[in-house]
Amino acid sequence: MDEKETQIITYDDFAKLQLKTGKVLECVKAENAEKLYILQVDLGEEKPRQIISSLVDYYSAEALVGKEIVVLANLKPAKMRGHLSEGMLLCAETPDSSVCVLLKAETSVPSGTSIT
């Protein structure tokens, strides 16, 4: 598919996505990867989720702690550089990757709140 071509999906496809608010509890740089952070994110569940993200060029680890974010919560877990990632942070990124910002709710809401 061409980079600029948009794939149209149905509402049923969209409804499969579980988007939730979360709060970053902890963030450390992955020792074996130059651009990866290992984050512990509260999604209002029994225990935090570990999410691996390539935000090193855009945020310091300290700046991420405490951030309220939006997470794709039902993405199949995957290993990244040997670390299990249990979700995906959502960001807005320019085509040239010069700007990348985390998405968040307009006002503070409890961790685990569904995005609809």
Rank of each mutant, 00 (worst) to 15 (best):
R49N: 06
G66Q: 03
Y59K: 11
D96V: 13
T116P: 00
E62F: 05
L102I: 15
L64G: 07
R81G: 10
Q50H: 01
Y37S: 05
K67E: 14
S111F: 08
V56S: 05
S97C: 13
D57V: 02
Y59V: 14
V109E: 05
L90M: 15
K67D: 11
L17S: 05
I115Q: 00
I115P: 09
V65R: 00
K35S: 14
I51H: 02
A33F: 04
P110T: 09
K23S: 08
M80D: 00
K16A: 12
L64F: 03
K35C: 04
V24W: 02
L55V: 12
A92T: 12
P110I: 11
C100I: 07
I115R: 00
Q50V: 07
Y37A: 11
K67T: 09
P48N: 10
L102C: 12
I51E: 03
L17E: 06
P110Q: 10
N32V: 10
V65A: 05
Q7T: 15
Q40N: 09
F14S: 04
A33V: 05
E93N: 00
G66K: 08
I69V: 15
E62D: 15
S53G: 10
T116Q: 13
G44P: 12
P77V: 12
L75K: 13
S114T: 14
T10K: 04
G112M: 09
D13M: 06
H83T: 12
E93G: 00
G22W: 04
L25S: 12
P77T: 08
A92F: 09
R49G: 10
S53Y: 01
A15N: 13
G82P: 01
K104M: 11
T6L: 15
T6S: 11
V65F: 04
S98C: 03
D96W: 07
A61Y: 02
G66V: 11
S114G: 00
V71Y: 02
L102A: 10
G22R: 05
T107P: 01
M1P: 13
I69D: 03
Y37D: 01
L43V: 13
S114L: 14
L43D: 02
H83Y: 13
D96R: 02
T116E: 15
D2W: 03
